[in-house]
Amino acid sequence: MEKLLPARERLLKSKKSSLDGEFRGKIMVILCAVLMISATIAITIFLGTKGLQSFTKNGISIIEFLTSTKWNPTDKANPAYGVLPFIFGSFAVTFLSALIAAPLGIGGAIFMTEIAPSWGRKILQPVVELLVGIPSVVYGFIGLTVLVPFIREHVGGLGFSLLSGTIVLAIMILPTITTIATDAMSSLPNHLREGSLALGATRWQTIRKVLVPAALPSLLTAIILGMARAFGEALAVQMVIGNVRNLPSSILDASATLTTIITLNMGHTTYGSVENNTLWSMGLILLIMSFAFILLIRYLSSRRKVR
């Protein structure tokens, strides 16, 4: 570069630089970030105020709301607003579906990364991606036409049940768990594998005692992300779970979850009514739960030991 100007002119920050492309680019990305943050905060605040109205304005006791099993908001004389059955339903399908999907997903991940990294991955990867792509309404529809009659005839009950919801959700969260678990396993440094094999450990011993423990925080993250998805899923569950207000007494009983009650009732309640407000309160519970899931994931990723 020609040095016609003195160093002072060439190298000092000019006042004008605040207007050049550097600055404009910076503003643009800051705006994007601000927009995302404010949207999240706005939703949280809105849901917070709306969700709390049933307690502050309509005078429903929080304790009763969370612990009563009676849900009868349309009874004019003696309405009851207990959502415990739905909270129970949500947690039940979430944990049960994770219980099914976690071993399958992690097993699939181990198969893809450790056992058959070349052809196994070639086959399973597209399968998993396809599972992600199927819309939840299709899962629900298949559940309704295949799973519900199957359970009714071969297992018992009406078919519409916690079990149906669990199975449909397990299939839906399987790709989430598999994908993240696969990433976790394949990002393990190769020297861990070699170190164990070089000591005369078998492949299975290495997987069980070295690789899975080393990837455990990430594997738990995979399961929790799957659970978060299961907890928030509404449509597919609603189509197979039966939607009753009672606490289910067995896995074959029909049930309901927070999300299914919201989607079922939001259409026919008037905005601002007590029943509508209680739906917002359920939404708030969902939000709080997803915060809890995120906190849990944060905690786990801070414990990740091997990089």
Binding site: P189, H191, L192, E194, G195, S196, L197, A198, L199, G200, A201, K209, V210, P213, A214, K305, V306
Partner: peptide, 27 residues
Amino acid sequence: ALRKEIGMVFQKPNPFPKSIYENITHA
């Protein structure tokens, strides 16, 4: 069985993310 008799140490130290004791008892 062969690797139990012919052991190997690598270029980059590769202890398992476990305790010192468990690293030795592992195999």
